[in-house]
Every structure is written in structure tokens, then in C-alpha cells.
């Protein structure tokens, strides 16, 4: 089963996504800030990363830049899931190499799972 890494600094969000992904048979791990997220991406080889943008220690923007710079992690697809304004940040994030830009108040957790599954199937990841 595909392994998903969620980089997100809000515990309530983590609980929400852990529950919904696990119930749908995914293996989900999470990181509470950007630095831990980079480490886990390197060490645990997830199939997909779901990344928040607004985080205290290291912003999501910085995380994706570093992920895409590192040969070990640059091929892992990244999806942005955030409360930041889509109109302002989407194009920048896609340019940095993100696959999609989803707003948390628009794409609900069950839909996130569905869309992730479609994406993985389309790209023949596990």
C-alpha cells in the first residue's frame, strides 16, 4: 500500500488526515514541522508528500524547494494542502514542482483521499 507523508503543524489536522487515510487503507506518516518532514522524506521514502505551507519553523515553500533540490527526494510527488490563498500561491507552487494546490476549505478530507488515489493510479505508483 502506498506510503504518504503529511507535513503539517496543526495536531487537529494531523488527526483528521491520519484517520481518513488509514480507514482507506493507506500507510500514512506525519511530521509536525518542515525540518522533521525533510528528514522523514529522506529516510522513509514515501510515495507521496502532502505539504502545508504556513508552518512556524520552516515554511512549506522552503520545504518544497529543498525537497526538489535533493536528488534523493526530488522525484517524490508533492501536493500542497493549505489554507493559503490559491490565487496568490498556486502558480508559484506549481512552478516549484508541486503536482496540485488544494485548499483545505475546498477539498474535504474524503475527497483528498479519493484524489490522491486517482493520482497514484494514474501514475502507476503501487
Amino acid at each position: 500500500m502506498a506510503k504518504i507523508l503529511l507535513i503539517e503543524d496543526d495536531n487537529d489536522q494531523i488527526l483528521l488526515y491520519h484517520t481518513v487515510f488509514k480507514m482507506n487503507g493507506f500507510n500514512i506518516i506525519s511530521a509536525i514541522d518542515g525540518k522533521i518532514g525533510l528528514d522523514r522524506a529522506k529516510n522513509e521514502h514515501p510515495d507521496l508528500i502532502i505539504l502545508d505551507l504556513n508552518m512556524e519553523e520552516m515554511s512549506g515553500e522552503e520545504v518544497i524547494k529543498r525537497l526538489k533540490k535533493n536528488p534523493e527526494t526530488k522525484n517524490i510527488p508533492v501536493i500542497i494542502l493549505t489554507n493559503m490563498d490559491k490565487r496568490k500561491f498556486q502558480s508559484q507552487m506549481l512552478e516549484l514542482g508541486a503536482e496540485y494546490f488544494w485548499e483545505k476549505t475546498v477539498v474535504m478530507p474524503p475527497d483528498v483521499v479519493k484524489k490522491v488515489r486517482d493520482f497514484l493510479e494514474k501514475n502507476k505508483i503501487k
Binding site: L16, T19, V20, M23, N83, D85, K104, T105, M108, P110
Partner: peptide, 28 residues
């Protein structure tokens, strides 16, 4: 900008959780 982001942060948890109740997954 700040206010809309601040409002969205709790709203997204409330909406997300409610959507899971509605879909039935939390009921299990």
C-alpha cells in the same frame, strides 16, 4: 490577508471533520 487565513484555519478543521461525519467514516 491575515484575518482570512486565521479564520480559515479553524474553519478547515470544522468543515473537514463534519465532512467525515457526513460521509460516514467517523461513524465506524
Amino acid at each position: 490577508d491575515i484575518a482570512s487565513h486565521q479564520l480559515k484555519t479553524p474553519i478547515s478543521v470544522i468543515m473537514g471533520t463534519a465532512s467525515m461525519f457526513r460521509e460516514g467514516s467517523i461513524g465506524k
